[in-house]
Simulated scan of single mutants.
Amino acid sequence: MTQPPKTTLHLQGEEQRPLIVIDDFWPDPDALREDAASLRMAPIGPHYPGVRAEVPPRLAETMRRRIAPLLAKHFGLDPAPAVSEAYYSLVTTAPADLAPIQRLPHFDGVERGRIAVLLFLGHGEQGGTAFYRQRSTAFETVDASRLDRFRAELEAGVQAHGMPEASYIADDTALYERIAVQPARFNRALVYAGNTLHCGYLPPEVTLSTDPLAGRLTLNLFLFDD
């Protein structure tokens, strides 16, 4: 029997930015897994360490409408931003093969109205999503007013400490302090501001597989009014 969704609000870090956890988010998550497995997944862009396939637009829009009341209540976004991108995502890149940009926390954009939705669809150990603070600035989010300083401090930090070794970030680093980890759980959705510094948390126990039914599969929505 499908459980009703359970919503929990977290206010993270010193900036106290909202993050919403929704357990038992989708009424039929196994259907999403089967849908992902039926699609041809391929690399999309330089940032994601794996392969992706586009989510059907009607499905993405239904999910957007489902979380719209939460965006109005906790993020002050009413109406909810439109679906900008939507993917099934499967981590496949071995730690030793990560590009430099994939070894650092990132943000999706500097705009206040940008929202990320991540739905965990894998079974077994899936890690989670980690959130970070840039040590030299104490920034936990990056908006347009912070962007130049963030970039300058990142460049200075890399010059001083070098690039991180080729591995998935697991804890604090010379440049970043981890402020929270939201653990993965099957059919758990995370909703957070896209300008939050974050990255996937993938300890060694997480299975990396090219099979969507065996690996670290997620569904990712990016909401933003272009």
Rank of each mutant, 00 (worst) to 15 (best):
L59R: 04
G45W: 05
A86Y: 03
A37W: 11
V55L: 02
V83F: 06
G113V: 05
I115G: 01
R64F: 02
A53K: 04
R65A: 04
G113C: 09
H106D: 13
L39T: 08
G109F: 12
R112V: 09
P43R: 03
A99M: 04
G113K: 10
L70F: 15
L98N: 02
M41L: 15
S84K: 04
L70S: 14
V91T: 14
V91D: 00
R58Y: 06
L98P: 03
E111P: 01
H47K: 11
E111C: 07
V110Q: 13
A37I: 13
D108S: 07
I101A: 07
V117K: 00
A80T: 13
P69Y: 00
L118I: 15
V117N: 02
A80D: 11
P46S: 06
G45E: 11
L39I: 08
E61S: 07
K73A: 14
L104A: 01
R103C: 11
H47I: 11
L90P: 14
P100G: 04
P95N: 00
A68F: 10
R52G: 03
V51K: 01
V83W: 01
R52S: 11
G122L: 01
R66F: 07
A96P: 01
M63S: 07
Y48V: 10
E85Q: 09
R65L: 11
L59K: 02
I67F: 12
A42D: 09
S89A: 11
